[in-house]
């Protein structure tokens, strides 16, 4: 049994159209699965559904989210919250807005260890210091006493990554963790996440637009279009021979893998029309 197993998940906006259509995907323990697709395809919605932070306006109409064999959707809210808090974590997209501006860094990392996992304050603090060291922050003790606005964007993203790994979660959802950062910082952060993931053996759901990132970090891949998984494959297979025409077009549209000088090419209209029709048909 895989650690995370999403089965036939469908969701819609209250009084609106569908957001997720019959989504299924598996993530084994220690595996990294990429979620790719155009903006608005529903990548973040899947992450939010796992973590239980869907917007109030979104309803799950069908399906299961099995975490270690237990369907999260059938749990009472309080139990689900604690289970997710204890075994999952989120690495958010924008480090500038993801830390509480009026609280020091320390408690923002250690609170979960103390209040959800029942550690002692001093154990939690030692753990926080160790992890800040792991993400290559100098003088962790000082940083723990600082406020977010005193730190750079790259520093804050490191802190958020440390915080995500602090509770030794089995599964981490990383929602475009490098998009908001400078290109120079992006590479370091990516390396950091990959390194920590490998060392801690954490399963990772990695949401991204960037197929280059996918080729470096992920083992498996789900390609989404308009809330539907159009291809579910391994990364090797995907880059060798994408099965779905939309995947192929997506791959072709990413210049690095064809002709670097060509620039970004749009996905051909014909392919879009075909995949749209397929997705709507269900």
């Amino acid at each position: 049994m895989n650690y995370l197993s999403i089965r036939n998940l469908s969701a819609r906006v209250k009084g609106g159209g569908p957001l997720l259509r019959d989504v299924s995907l598996e993530v084994a323990a220690g595996e990294v699965r990429g979620l790719v697709g155009e903006s608005g395809a529903g990548k973040s919605m899947i992450g939010k559904a796992i973590l239980g932070i869907l917007p109030k306006a979104v309803d799950i109409t069908e399906g299961q989210i099995l975490l270690d064999g237990t369907d999260l959707l059938s749990l009472p809210p309080a139990e689900r919250r604690i289970r997710v808090g204890a075994s999952c974590a989120l690495i958010p997209q924008d480090p500038l807005t993801a830390l509480n501006p009026s609280r020091r860094i320390g408690p923002q990392i250690t609170d979960r260890l103390v209040h959800i996992l029942g550690w002692t304050r001093s154990d939690a603090e030692a753990r926080a210091r160790a992890l800040l060291g792991e993400v290559q922050i100098n003088d962790p003790a000082r940083v723990l006493r600082q406020y977010p606005h005193e730190l750079s964007g790259g520093m804050r993203q490191r802190i958020l990554i440390a915080s995500a790994f602090a509770a030794e979660p089995k599964l981490i959802v990383a929602d475009e963790p490098t998009t908001a950062l400078d290109v120079t910082v992006q590479k370091q952060i990516l390396k950091l996440i990959a390194g920590l993931q490998a060392r801690h053996g954490t399963a990772l759901v990695f949401v991204t637009h960037d197929l280059g990132v996918v080729s470096k970090v992920c083992q498996s891949l789900s390609v989404l279009y308009s809330g539907r998984v159009v291809e579910d494959t391994t990364v090797t297979d995907f880059f060798r021979a994408p099965k779905h025409p939309y995947s192929a077009a997506l791959l072709a549209a990413t210049p690095k893998y064809t002709d670097p000088s060509a620039g970004l090419k749009p996905v051909p209209d014909a392919v879009i029309a075909a995949v749209k029709a397929e997705v709507e048909r269900g």
Partner: peptide, 10 residues
């Protein structure tokens, strides 16, 4: 940051 805190089990 509130959304993030919500994923932490509180």
């Amino acid at each position: 940051y509130v959304t993030l805190a919500r994923t932490q089990g509180y």
